[in-house]
Design a protein around this nucleic acid. Structure first.
Lengths: 113, 113
DNA sequence: ACAATATATTCAAATATTATTATATTTTTA
DNA sequence: TAAAAATATAATAATATTTGAATATATTGT
């Protein structure tokens, strides 16, 4: 099992709009670079860089199909992350129940301004 | 409901070792800055900076208790993210079934080296 | 009012991330 | 085997993130 540190690194890698779009496509199925170029509004080298970064972290991998590189998902945490990003949440968590104790004080006092 | 872009921003903010430690404590309950200083191996100003960043993004908030600031969780996505980070996964996703079609080619060909 | 405590802010330096441009590599097809 | 298609790599420039040091602010107790 991967360390917490590695998982945090992974989360950071994934937390980028272009890379989320890429992964959103890949959960649906295999795609090659040109497929990505069509719907990502960025240059081909930039697509390649994002794909290469994702591969370096083991998030995705590819098969060769002639001169095409067919990318697919490899890390099983990805579908869960994507689902989380789309899940609906209530606006705010309930304020903590009165009065848990911190090392230094008792909660709560006045609400901040 | 928050936009996908905002959620990705949030994910990026959260994806930092110190901030994950802070949030890991806050899911357990209210904590003040000195409490954090005890187990985070960083300076007081740096603790403050991380807390301030998390608050700027609405992840946490605080109550005043005398001269203490008692921080607590505010964004309901946080417990889910923390849980995901600890969830156990199988090593790799199953290779995609033969042969989904990309715009440009058919999958799969040779496995990469 | 003054000192002490708890915490925040500001600025700068170090580092990391991102996108751009130009060029290279690989495979297929003619 | 040369041209093309598909994709990668490298170098650079722009920007953002992170930390550290110094200083500031606010609240309480005396």
């Amino acid at each position: 099992m991967r360390s917490l540190g590695k998982r945090i690194e992974l989360l950071k890698i994934v937390a980028h709009p272009v890379r989320i779009k890429i992964l959103d496509e890949l959960v649906k199925g295999v795609k090659c670079v040109t497929d990505f170029e069509e719907f990502l509004d960025i240059s081909q080298p930039n697509v390649s860089q994002h794909l290469s970064l994702l591969r370096r972290y083991g998030v995705i991998d590819y098969y060769m199909d002639g001169r095409l590189r067919c990318y697919f998902l490899r890390d099983p945490i990805i579908p869960d992350i994507l689902e989380l990003l789309k899940k609906d949440y209530i606006e705010e968590m309930p304020a903590p129940a009165c009065c848990p104790v911190t090392k230094k004080g008792k909660y709560p006092g006045k609400r901040r301004g």
